[in-house]
């Protein structure tokens, strides 16, 4: 018996797989966690925005402390700079958003994850 190229069974399997390929990501995966890019003076490091965390970054004026909440939103909670604008800049969550503390040379930048749609923000 020659195996056929394509039968009703194939159609059913292909259809099933298409449904599966749509269902699996819905059931299994949320959006990828965004990354938080931390600029400290000349250094850059990255942390996943997956869970709640308090992180510190060091600059010439001292420590800038910021918080990542459970929803991947980042805000500065303590800053050594005089006008503390960075504290009012947050929270940021969408890709491309930044909080900059110019006096302390610390910048926080969200990349990927929620939104994940812009390459720059005009502000």
């Amino acid at each position: 018996m020659m195996r056929p190229l394509f039968t009703v069974i194939d159609a059913a399997v292909v259809a099933g797989l298409i449904v599966l390929s749509i269902l699996i990501p819905i059931l299994k995966g949320d959006e990828p966690p965004g990354m938080l890019i931390i600029h400290e003076g000349g250094h850059v490091r990255e942390v996943e925005l997956e869970r709640w965390a308090t992180i510190e970054a060091e600059g010439p004026l001292g420590v800038t402390r910021f918080e990542v909440d459970g929803d991947g939103r980042v805000s500065v909670i303590k800053a050594p700079c005089p006008n503390r604008l960075c504290v009012s800049m947050g929270p940021i969550a969408e890709s491309g958003e930044v909080i900059v503390c110019v006096p302390n040379r610390v910048a926080l930048e969200v990349a990927g994850g929620k939104g994940g749609v812009v390459d720059a923000v005009s502000r």
Binding site: R73, S88, M89, G90, P91, A93, V117, V118, S122
Partner: peptide
């Protein structure tokens, strides 16, 4: 993105 002037982030 054009930042929202009244809603930070």
């Amino acid at each position: 993105g054009i930042a929202h002037p009244r809603k930070p982030g």
